[in-house]
Amino acid sequence: MSNFFALIQNENMKIYRKNATKVMLIILLGMILAAGLIIKLNQPAPKENTQWKQSLVQQNKMYQQQMAQVKGSKQAVNYYKQTIATNQYRIDHNLKPAQGMTLWSFVESAAPNAALLISIFAIIVVSTSIASEFDTGTIKLLLIRPIRRTEVLLSKYLSTLMFAVFCLIVLFVFSWLIGGIMFGFGGAAEAHLSYINGKVYETSWVLAIWKNYLLSCVSLFMMVTFAGLIASAFRNSGLAIGLSIFLMMASSIIIQLLGGYSWVKYVLFANTDLTQYTTGTPLRSDMTLSFSLTVLAVYYVIFVIIGWLFYTKRDIKA
């Protein structure tokens, strides 16, 4: 197995020695910095609010009334219940709500866009790693070693996933630092309130952020695998990158267009957003978390098998 570790080392060397990868990391850092600056400059100076308990009590009363009016909508009722419970918890435990942006809310708000960016980068990395060796001809010297093609492909795939994790760590650390510099490191001690089954708990922000990252990674994971399949099948990195990014970007439109059909639930993109089961409402009422996980698993296995067959069985003519 030390041999396989060496393959991972090789793929990592090829990923990080490329200028394109360095540019990606710079773009990621630049985006976080820019977001921090824009928010900081547009945010009015926070006013000292000593009356926050009274205003929360007011807010809760208002929400109670509104909740009574929207009885029909389960989603809205849930939202009000959660807000009211959280507010009550703050009043009871003397936890003043944050004014404007804080360190942690910045880290949280940077996550969705950055996750999309990282998905694009990971698609580029996996496509280049698999297909570009056919363009440059290096594939010939790579595959004449006493190593199975399966191992070579697996090392490329795993190295890409490691690259994505590395990007997430960079995102976390850097957005934490920028958040601290822009909005004060005092916010680091802030508690994260989560609402689970009608009760409010104080939890760690770090856990909440990483849970958030991991949920965004479902789409990343599936699209990287898809890009790997296209790259293996067509041996063309441009096609793999273009098609995968296009599908990822168009996924919400595709789901909207197909929304009327009952079979939409079997479409990959209807199942990549697992937050529909935690905070939102499922796309269709007959969809459950285990249903989505099953659909994802089936797609995953199909992608992997087809990509693997193409990579390992076809002649190298490059």
């Binding site: 060496a6 393959l7 060397m13 090829k14 010297l141 070693r145 006493p146």
Partner: peptide, 20 residues
Amino acid sequence: EMYKFLTGYQNLIHYARMIP
């Protein structure tokens, strides 16, 4: 055809790692 973005030595290390 070798990896052009790597040095000659890095290329050799790359191939050396593939055979114990």
